[in-house]
Simulated assay, not measured.
Amino acid sequence: MKRTIGLTGSIATGKSTVSQWLKEAGFAVVDADIAARKVVEKGTAGLEEIRQHFGETVLTKEGELNRGKLGKIIFEDAEKRTLLNQIVHPKVKAYMLKEREALFEAGETIVIFDIPLLYESHLEALVDQIVVVRTSRETEIKRLMARDGIQAEAAIQKIDTQMPIEEKEQRADFVIDNDGSLEKTKKQVDHLIQQFKNFQ
């Protein structure tokens, strides 16, 4: 039986670490962040659409996407952020579904969809079950401050753009608590891997 598992969390909860462990355990992982970069590479329809709507200024001299410039524009303008999402999100979804199809055809029985904003983007229907990686809000703020070199206020602002982690936990099929040591988290992931293997 073929199965798609959605992996999500919130910013700085440690989802990427869990994703890496799942890869190391031999699971096929399709990463939404990688997909989002692929669909706007030089020469793609995605990049051309962005150029048409946002102008030449968001391109580098080499004709690639200038992420810094585009990021500044959408950070300051909610309408433009929505427009960018309308361009990119359907392409990311199509890319991930195509990747999944190829993996299933190659004999994989479980595919992990690593999607940071799975709930926020309303992509639950793409997956059979959902794993949420969580920490307490305090831990999340501390880790984000350390990771990005920012003050608490800026960290809170970033965290508050996403759905509260408590809500994600309530809607999850599996929860990985990454509030303690890496060893404790790894034990939970190993248990999860065993459950996944029982599906196969």
Rank of each mutant, 00 (worst) to 15 (best):
T4G: 01
T8Q: 02
S10L: 06
S10A: 11
A12P: 03
A12Q: 01
G14D: 00
V18A: 00
Q20Y: 13
L22W: 07
L22N: 04
L22P: 04
E24G: 02
E24I: 11
A25E: 05
A25W: 01
G26A: 00
V29D: 01
V30N: 10
D31Q: 04
A35R: 00
R37G: 10
V40I: 04
V40D: 03
G43F: 10
G43C: 09
T44C: 00
A45K: 11
G46C: 05
G46A: 02
L47N: 04
H53V: 09
E56K: 15
T57Q: 08
V58C: 06
L59Q: 03
T60M: 10
K61N: 13
E62D: 14
E64G: 13
E64T: 15
L65Y: 03
L65I: 02
N66P: 00
G71D: 02
I74H: 02
F75Y: 13
F75N: 10
F75D: 08
D77Y: 09
A78C: 04
T82L: 13
T82S: 15
L83S: 06
N85L: 00
Q86C: 10
V88R: 08
K93T: 10
A94H: 01
A94C: 05
A94N: 10
Y95N: 11
L97Q: 10
K98E: 15
E99Q: 14
E101Y: 05
A102S: 13
L103G: 11
E105L: 15
E105Y: 11
G107D: 04
G107L: 09
F113W: 06
D114W: 05
L117P: 06
H122K: 14
D128K: 05
Q129K: 14
Q129C: 15
Q129L: 12
R134E: 14
R137N: 07
T139D: 03
T139Q: 13
I141R: 04
K142L: 13
K142F: 11
L144D: 05
M145C: 11
M145Q: 12
A146C: 06
A146I: 02
R147L: 12
R147N: 08
G149K: 03
I150M: 02
A154S: 07
A154K: 02
A155Y: 04
Q157G: 08
Q157S: 08
D160W: 02
D160A: 00
Q162E: 06
Q162H: 00
P164D: 03
E167K: 12
K168Y: 07
Q170V: 09
F174W: 15
V175Y: 07
D177A: 11
L182Y: 11
K184D: 14
T185S: 13
V189C: 04
D190V: 15
L192F: 15
Q194T: 14
Q194C: 14
F196W: 14
F196T: 12
N198R: 12
F199H: 14
